[in-house]
Computed example of a mutant assay.
Amino acid sequence: MAEILSQSEIDELLKAFSQGEVKDLEKVEEKKTKKIRSYDFRRPNKFSKEQLRTLQMIFENFSRSLTSFLSGYLRTIVNVVVVSVDQLTYYEFSNSLNNPVFIAIIDASPLEGPFLLELNNNTTYAILDRLLGGMGKGEFLDRDYTEIEVNLLTKIVKQILPLLEEPWSNIIDLTPSLMRVETNSQFAQIISPNETVALCTLSIKINETEGMMNFCMPHLTLEPIVPKLTTKFWFSSMKKEEKVNPELIKEKIDKTYIPLTVQLGSTTVTVGDLLKFEVGDVIMLDKRYNEPVEVIIDKKVKFKGIPGIKSKRYSVKITEVIYKGDEESE
């Protein structure tokens, strides 16, 4: 049975409490609870939330450039968006990969250490199908990549890497280059399994096929620039947009080289005649010797002229301008 306090004891207790000699036990317990924070030593957090948010901003800029590039390169509708940016151990990342897998190990110069780019099978087979004339269906084939497929994917990765330079320019002048390609995750152990990495996952949708692209960035590689991975530094170092100079653009265009073809004439022959051609045979064209020839640029007839010789070289003298610039609608 609990002890019952007398009236005098109750008065003494209230007096002590009012003078601050007795502390509020609930407030003390609440303060102690706030100071306790769980920490997993097997998965130490080396990136703050702000640093991960800055990485997400970098790859959102990259995803926009990648969308434009892949849409033009594959000649189809492509959409790339950032799904997540997380930190985890390299073991957790490598353990989630299924073989065969396409992994590009990237030299992240001037940083000391590599990045890792992984394309899952849905993405790679959709790209390969589109490059080889298909509709871009990512049908998974349970086999290793062929040498031709690896070469095609390697070529496209080499063209993707320069797109990383501009998004990273506010933090560091990155010049990424491809070191090697692996199709087995066991041969892509670039760091210790317990090391922390930042993993950026992008979703790539090619027509109706959706796949993933993962950028794995070890903390050891990013360590020299981790203090710069803040939104404040990001916006303070953004370069001001330069005003467009029409004269400079015109000057650059004027120095651009374009292929030009002169067509003397054409004709048709049978397959039988073609197989009988020998050195010394004469082919009759559909134009007379005194008729003007066509000067073709980008598969369009732009000028007509008369063939001749100048400074011991075959030449064409322009006699007629078909149309200039955009005067004729296409």
Results as ranks from 00 to 15, higher is better:
T231H: 09
V28L: 05
S109K: 13
Y323W: 11
L153R: 10
F41E: 07
E92T: 09
D86E: 15
Y323H: 14
L14K: 14
L199E: 04
N170D: 03
A188C: 03
I105G: 05
E210I: 06
I171L: 09
S192C: 06
Q19E: 15
E328F: 10
G72Q: 12
P227F: 14
E147P: 00
K300F: 13
T256W: 11
L70Y: 02
G113W: 13
E330D: 08
E328W: 05
P218M: 10
M213C: 06
V197D: 04
V226C: 09
E12P: 00
F93L: 15
I204F: 07
K32C: 02
P167D: 03
K158V: 14
S6M: 11
G134N: 00
T221I: 14
L88D: 01
Q263W: 04
G138F: 00
I103E: 01
E242Y: 09
K32T: 00
E30I: 06
G133H: 01
Q19N: 14
D254P: 06
G134D: 00
G325P: 06
V157N: 04
I156N: 07
C216K: 01
T230W: 02
E208L: 12
N99G: 01
Y73G: 06
F115H: 10
L116G: 10
F41Q: 12
S96P: 00
K304P: 03
V83I: 15
M57A: 04
D144G: 10
S236G: 03
S169M: 06
E327I: 04
Y314C: 05
E242H: 10
I253P: 00
K35V: 13
S236I: 07
V22D: 02
G305A: 01
I10Q: 10
L14H: 11
R43S: 08
Q159S: 14
S94Y: 08
L222Q: 11
E166R: 09
T33A: 15
S68R: 08
P307T: 12
R75V: 08
L97F: 07
S329C: 05
T33P: 00
R130W: 04
S192M: 05
K310W: 07
T270C: 03
P176D: 01
G134R: 00
N194Y: 07
L119H: 12
D326R: 11
I103C: 02
I318A: 06
Q263A: 13
K34D: 00
K35E: 15
I206V: 02
E182G: 07
S192H: 12
K158Y: 13
I309P: 01
K302S: 06
V271G: 01
L132C: 00
Q186T: 06
V28M: 07
E112C: 07
K27W: 03
R42E: 13
G72M: 10
I58E: 05
D286L: 12
S96E: 06
A2Q: 01
